[in-house]
Simulated assay, not measured.
Amino acid sequence: MDIFCQQHRDFPLEEQDQIRDPVLWENLIIRVRAFTAWQQLLARGLSRSALINFHSRYKYQLMANNPEQYKVLGKLLGSMTYDDDPQVLGPRYFSQLMQALRRCATRGTHTNVLLHLSGYLRKSLSQDERQEMRQLISQYHAGTVPLKVPLTRLKQHLCRHPNAYLTHQVYLDPPSQNLDVRNAM
C-alpha cells in the first residue's frame, strides 16, 4: 500500500475507521469524484480551456473545502500564459486541488458558499423568496437545520430560474444526494 500511495499521491484514500464519520465519508467521495473527473479530462486531452473549465466546475466545492487554496489555485490558472504547457501545469494544479479538497468543509464555509450561490438568483427571486433563502441559510449556520435544507431550496429555485454556470457546479451535485449524509451536517 505504501508503494501505491507513493506512486499515486493524489489518489483519494482514507483510513477505514475514519469513513464511519459521515463528513469524512462525504469528503472522500468528493475527492474520488474529482479524481475520476480528472482522469476523464486527461483521457479527452488536457488543454488550457479544459483546465480552466475543470476549475470553474469545482469553484464552489473548493471554496467550501478550502477558501484559501481556492484563491491560490485561481491565481495559478489566472496567471497561465500561452507559453505555459497545460501538460506541465495541469498535474501541479490537480495535486494542489486534491490536497485542498482533503480539508472538510465547515458550517461557516458552507454558509459562505450558499450565500454566494443564492446571490446569483437575487434578481430572479421575489423579496419573500430571498428572505426565506437567507433565513434557511441562517438556520443552517446556527445548526437548527441540516445543510440539505437550504441546499434543496436553492436547487428548487435553480430549477425554476436556470443558470448555466451554476448548473455545472460540482457543489450542487453532492455525493451525499443518495447517501443522506447532508442531513447529518
Rank of each mutant, 00 (worst) to 15 (best):
N27F: 00
I30C: 08
R31L: 00
R31D: 00
F35Q: 14
T36V: 11
W38K: 05
L41Y: 07
L41G: 02
L42V: 12
A43I: 02
L51D: 10
L51R: 13
L51G: 09
I52L: 15
I52R: 15
N53F: 08
F54C: 03
S56A: 07
Y60A: 07
Y60K: 11
Q61V: 03
A64T: 11
P67S: 09
V72F: 13
V72D: 11
K75H: 10
S79T: 07
P86K: 11
V88D: 15
L89G: 07
R92C: 04
Y93F: 13
Q96F: 05
L97V: 07
M98R: 10
Q99P: 00
Q99A: 14
Q99N: 14
A100I: 03
L101V: 04
L101M: 12
R102T: 05
C104A: 14
A105E: 10
A105Q: 10
T106R: 12
R107I: 07
G108Y: 04
H110F: 03
T111G: 02
T111V: 01
N112R: 09
N112H: 10
V113Y: 11
V113N: 12
L114Y: 10
H116I: 01
S118T: 09
G119P: 02
L121I: 03
L121G: 05
K123C: 01
L125Y: 01
E129S: 13
E132K: 15
M133P: 00
L136E: 08
L136P: 05
